[in-house]
Simulated assay, not measured.
Amino acid sequence: MQQYNESLISWKQHKPSKDAGINNIQMPGKPTLMVWQTRDHEPTSYELSLAEHLIMAFSSGAETIDEVVSALNQQGMLHGDGSAFTAESFEQEMARLGH
């Protein structure tokens, strides 16, 4: 199974594309049903670990950003740069990962 949409790599840029993904995301009459249609790469070990720690945080009752950050830090989940999470760094990381 394909783990990510390879077409998104070239399509995702900081400047508008003249082609805008024509025939890259879906070709008319030839749809490709892809489980990971919106992924532009396979998840890293950091992203997978963060997802597991977030599941544990929410499962333990965390509802606010402060509670989630506290749970991540108590679990020993570090930010990608090796520092402990703060509310601000958590929000920035979620924005970065969510594109």
Rank of each mutant, 00 (worst) to 15 (best):
I65Y: 03
Q74P: 01
V69P: 01
S10T: 12
E67K: 08
K30R: 12
F58T: 14
M56D: 08
L33Y: 13
G98V: 06
G21W: 08
T86M: 05
S60L: 07
S70I: 04
M77K: 07
Q75N: 12
D66G: 04
S59Q: 13
T86H: 08
S17I: 12
E67F: 04
G76F: 05
S83W: 03
M34R: 03
A20C: 12
A87I: 15
M94I: 15
M77D: 02
E47K: 06
Q13R: 10
Y46T: 00
F90R: 03
S83C: 11
P16S: 15
H79W: 03
A20W: 13
S17H: 14
G98A: 15
Q37L: 06
I9H: 03
A57G: 02
Q13F: 04
E47D: 09
Q74W: 04
M1K: 07
E93S: 08
E6W: 02
L78K: 10
M1V: 10
P28H: 07
E42C: 03
A62R: 00
L78C: 09
L97M: 14
I55E: 11
G76D: 11
Y46C: 01
I65S: 01
I22H: 15
P16F: 10
L48K: 13
G82L: 06
A71I: 01
A87P: 05
T86L: 05
T44C: 04
G61A: 09
G80T: 06
S59Y: 09
S45R: 09
Q92D: 15
M77T: 01
G80I: 06
L50E: 00
G80Y: 08
Q75F: 05
G80H: 11
V35S: 11
E63K: 14
L50A: 01
K30H: 10
S70M: 06
A95H: 06
P28N: 05
W11I: 14
E63N: 11
T32H: 08
D66Y: 07
T32K: 13
S10H: 11
S10P: 00
L33R: 13
R96C: 05
S83Q: 15
I55K: 13
I22L: 15
H53P: 03
E47Y: 04
D19S: 11
V68W: 03
K15D: 10
V68K: 00
Q2K: 15
S59A: 12
F90E: 02
S7G: 12
T32W: 09
A87F: 07
I25F: 06
